[in-house]
Simulated assay, not measured.
Amino acid sequence: MSRMLVDKEAIRALADILTDTGLTEIEVSEGDSRLRVARNVTVQAAAPAAAAAPAPAAASAAPASGDAAAPADPSSHPGAVPSPMVGVAYLTPDPSSPPFVQEGTQVSAGQTIMLIEAMKTFNQIKAPRAGKLVRYCVASGEPVEFGATLAIIE
């Protein structure tokens, strides 16, 4: 019977990242080794409060845009840009700079539209196609999960 070695410091470091960022899980792999740390979060109490706060904004934005379906599920939009990783999104290169791209601006394929910080490394998120960046779906400093919609490019 072989005994698996567990790096308790790595587990603690990943757990600290989960706590600091508000994420629910994180996974790291190196060679044949994989380490995944996840935590259960009860969102039943937080969900009504979170749903109540954006509802007035969504309701007021729907008549102005004329497209009530867009705010409901941006991931189903054909121009959705999904997050390639778990981390914290940043729309600017640093806090005192303007965003990489303003909403409503044309972008070219491969142009940096934001950063995602993961494990203290800033990863450039590039536009997968040319088009108009219609909307950011995340705020700067907001934690994002893998596959979450970051922006819409039409």
Rank of each mutant, 00 (worst) to 15 (best):
T42V: 14
Q44M: 11
V101E: 04
A62L: 06
L115N: 05
A70M: 13
S96C: 03
E27W: 01
S65L: 13
G147L: 10
A139L: 14
L18P: 04
E103Y: 04
T24G: 15
A127D: 04
T42M: 13
V43L: 14
K8A: 15
R39S: 07
P48F: 02
A51V: 10
A10L: 13
A15R: 11
A52G: 10
A49Y: 11
P95C: 01
L14P: 00
G147E: 09
A139R: 14
P98R: 11
T149I: 05
S65M: 05
E145A: 15
I26H: 04
A15I: 00
D94E: 13
V6Y: 03
P74T: 04
P54N: 11
D7H: 07
V41S: 03
G31H: 01
A51G: 13
A15N: 06
V107P: 04
T92A: 15
V43E: 12
R39L: 11
L23A: 12
Q124S: 15
A64I: 14
E142S: 10
A58E: 15
R129E: 05
G79D: 07
S76G: 08
E30H: 11
A130I: 07
A64G: 03
L23V: 07
N40W: 11
L14R: 03
T121F: 01
L35V: 14
P56M: 07
A72C: 05
G31F: 00
Q111D: 05
E9P: 01
P128F: 08
K132H: 06
A58T: 07
H77W: 05
A80K: 05
Q102T: 07
E25T: 08
R129Y: 00
Q44W: 08
D67V: 12
M85V: 05
R34P: 00
T19F: 10
C137Y: 03
E117A: 02
E145Q: 14
E27G: 04
A47C: 03
F146M: 08
N123L: 06
D73N: 15
G141L: 06
I125W: 00
A62Q: 12
T21G: 03
A68I: 10
A55M: 14
E25F: 08
R129S: 09
D20Y: 03
V43I: 10
G66W: 07
A45Q: 14
T121V: 15
G87H: 10
E117H: 00
V88L: 00
V88Y: 02
S108N: 12
S75T: 10
N40L: 13
A139K: 13
I116T: 07
P63M: 02
L35N: 02
V6L: 13
T149F: 04
A70N: 04
T21V: 05
E25V: 00
E25C: 09
A10V: 02
R129C: 01
A47Y: 11
A70L: 13
R12F: 06
E25S: 15
S33F: 10
M85R: 09
H77T: 03
D7P: 00
A13H: 08
T149Y: 06
F100L: 02
A55T: 12
A130M: 04
G110H: 08
A10G: 01
L5S: 12
R135Y: 06
A45D: 14
E145T: 13
G66P: 06
P74A: 09
S108M: 10
F122V: 01
